[in-house]
Design a protein around this nucleic acid. Structure first.
Lengths: 226, 226
DNA sequence: GGTTCTACCTTTACACTGTACAGTAAAACC
DNA sequence: GGTTTTACTGTACAGTGTAAAGGTAGAACC
């Protein structure tokens, strides 16, 4: 009680910290393309034994909580006095970018019920921007749920797509179509051949179509939500 | 080549099959509330050694593919001649129900690039219904991407919520608010206290608000998409 | 400056995971 | 009836998260 606690001593050489561990875990997960590192691999990259991590995290789930919060910290916050519609558009785009940049994050999020500070700050800013934009509490809740659902769901689908060179994509599309005879799945075939496999098509572009539809809908309903 | 292959022999007592294994895995995952069973536990429940599974699946990922397809098989298909708007509404609701009934499915889906037959059949029916409803190919692609993103994303958020009795929910909300002082997160506090924690509030109801907004938006744009 | 304390890290161990590899018994086929 | 195939068992191994206990260097106190 004599001095401030909670601060790391910072005198000992090479001391670990929650932040350093999370940052290293994020870096490794990004590098290994979507797989969260094991405790041993992570510890090794920090020059430490595996069990050392457990002095900073109750268990691995706590580490994952920290990693999710790290991602939220990268998302651009909407200013409270900004025009709500472009602000929400930018924020959704920024959220999508962060989730695509860290493809492991979405898979981890659905089991995490302990939001971190960056997550709370992010939610607060979004709600604040909507409230300042004229939405009622209920309206802001509707909007937030809808926008976030869309972004999360879009990223899930985007990440599930076969990634790689155009040839690889072409090949994977063909292998699916081979399993799916055109007679049995006529509409799927039509869309694949006549639309999605056309040169220049990019599923990522669908993001803006859906987002703008949602934003227009929110604008239309803003003043009807009590 | 002399007889039909692909059929199980069915003469040997207690013979396994892809379908039986998948059904058992789904049942166990549902029972253990969200955790996919290990190969050993699954094998034990089938009265067999763990390695026996590998005669029916190349590896565990193939099993997961099968489980996802099992879930898709439970989703109500839209009839091709149905009115597209109520049909899409019912299909989205049915999809959500299936994903909530099998909470492990969403977490598994994002890494699965090998759709099964039920999945393809489902996609084909949805696209077919939209096309019959007057959407262009591009319009159907927009609609499909948007609706699916919404359903997936909504379910992710729904499942991440603390589940349990009202008291447990109340307690978990309070623990979050304790971490988040009202001065620092005013809008979050306002929404939690003045909206989400009010008796009778159910996050699940937000599903319909967002879904109807999207469906109305699709209707408005249907004839503008080329 | 010496003692005590304690925050941080190591060591060892255990139960559990997916799966490679080799073996075996029964069924299917000629 | 002998050969081949199919469906399964047994054993083994590298890797996982983490409990328990032990060690040690620096901080705190006198």
């Amino acid at each position: 009680m004599s001095t401030e606690t909670g601060e790391p001593p910072a005198t000992r050489r090479n001391t670990l910290s929650r932040e350093k561990v999370v940052a290293a875990a994020v870096a490794m997960a990004d590098a290994s393309d979507g797989k969260v590192p094991s405790t041993r691999k992570l510890a090794e990259s920090l020059g430490v034994q595996a069990m050392a991590l457990y002095h900073h995290f109750r268990n691995k789930d706590a580490l994952l909580d920290g990693m999710v919060d790290f991602v939220f910290a990268e998302v651009e916050l909407p200013a409270a006095d900004a025009d709500w519609k472009p602000a929400m558009r930018r924020r959704a785009a920024s959220m999508r970018e962060a989730l695509v940049r860290h493809p492991w994050a979405i898979a981890i999020m659905d089991s995490r019920a302990n939001p971190g500070i960056a997550t709370l700050r992010h939610h607060d800013a979004v709600i604040g921007c909507l409230r300042a934009g004229g939405f009622t509490i209920a309206g802001a809740a509707h909007s937030f749920a809808l926008l976030d659902s869309y972004v999360y769901g879009f990223v899930i689908q985007e990440l599930a797509l076969p990634l790689g060179s155009p040839e690889e994509i072409q090949q994977s599309a063909e292998s699916v179509l081979a399993l799916a005879p055109a007679e049995e799945f006529p509409h799927l075939t039509e869309m694949a051949v006549g639309h999605a496999m056309k040169p220049g098509y990019d599923y990522g572009d669908e993001f803006w179509t859906g987002l703008d539809l949602i934003l227009d809908g929110l604008e239309q309903r803003r003043d009807t939500w009590r």
